[in-house]
Design a protein around this nucleic acid. Structure first.
Length: 267
DNA sequence: ATCGGTACCTGCACGC
DNA sequence: TGCGTGCAGGTACCGA
């Protein structure tokens, strides 16, 4: 679920509530979400003050008065604010509980692909990320396309651009009229510019609409997104293409379901 | 250095 | 009804 627009909305829905809060205590129950020594993590977080919350790629960076807490939502992770001052009954898939000086923050993640990690300095996983798609210049974007990988795979590669996932990669390629199996280095300047514009336009609109709630995505206040109404190919296999009316196809690229229109998207 | 395939974990839809 | 299979918003890691 959570790609750049969803993570951005989670951050926006949580930032004002968390800034300035103090962490009283925490509890973590998954060896996958919180790998390593969980008792040590709990110990390091106790008493810390939250300075700010921001997004980098699909990562949520929570700056503390000492160190940084990095949260990645994986496929099914959610951060949820609980205004109740008393600890609620943790659900089956609640793997993180942050008891704050004002309210509570829960981490919920059925598949446990998400991660909650503490680091003293800059988190190492974040250091490897490519540029932000909404900040990169066209010139740099063009230069980074000089690779032989298939464009869909490249868009999913977080060291190429940070934040695109399966939904927005498919939607961007459709909007740009580019076949997902196109070799990136073979894109002309004109088509590269179309893709650049498509990525920025789609991400911007998706952020404004609160992200895509295709299954159960909600922000930290429990609010759904509406960009799924704007999807043209993702999840629309067999439906008529909005452009030409031919059925939307689905293939496997980089082990991911890839939705596209064979007539409108050319290699 | 790059690329593609596999593994990680749980829930759900689908076909028999 | 019940069970096996495949698939799902993501990323790390391995071998080629």
């Amino acid at each position: 679920m959570p790609e750049l627009p969803e993570v951005e909305n989670v951050v926006r829905s949580v930032a004002a509530h968390l800034a300035g809060r103090r962490i009283i205590s925490t509890r973590f129950t998954s060896r996958f979400v919180t790998p390593g020594n969980r008792a040590k993590l709990t110990q390091r977080l106790a008493g810390r003050r939250i300075e700010s919350v921001r997004r980098r790629g699909k990562f949520i960076l929570i700056a503390l008065d000492q160190g940084t807490l990095t949260v990645h939502l994986g496929m099914t992770g959610k951060l949820l604010l609980e205004k109740a001052l008393t600890p609620g009954q943790a659900g089956e898939h609640t793997h993180g509980v942050f008891h704050l000086d004002d309210g509570m923050l829960l981490y919920h993640d059925p598949r446990q692909f998400g991660r909650i990690e503490f680091s003293e300095g800059a988190p190492p996983r974040v250091a490897r990320l490519g540029p932000e798609p909404l900040e990169i210049s066209f010139e740099e974007f063009r230069a980074r396309l000089r690779r032989k990988a298939r464009i869909k795979a490249l868009l999913l590669n977080q060291t190429f651009l940070a934040g695109l996932g399966n939904i927005y990669a498919d939607e961007s390629l459709f909007a740009a009229g580019i076949h997902p199996l196109t070799i990136a280095s073979k894109l002309t300047d004109t088509r590269a510019k179309k893709l650049y514009d498509a990525i920025q336009g789609i991400l911007t609109q998706a952020i404004q609409l609160g992200g895509s709630s295709i299954s159960d995505y909600v922000n930290a206040q429990g609010e759904r997104g509406w960009f799924q109404m704007e999807h043209r190919v993702y999840g629309r296999e067999g439906e008529p293409c909005a452009n030409c009316g031919r059925p939307i196809g689905k293939i496997l690229v980089a082990q991911r379901g890839t939705h596209y229109c064979a007539a409108c998207q050319k290699k």
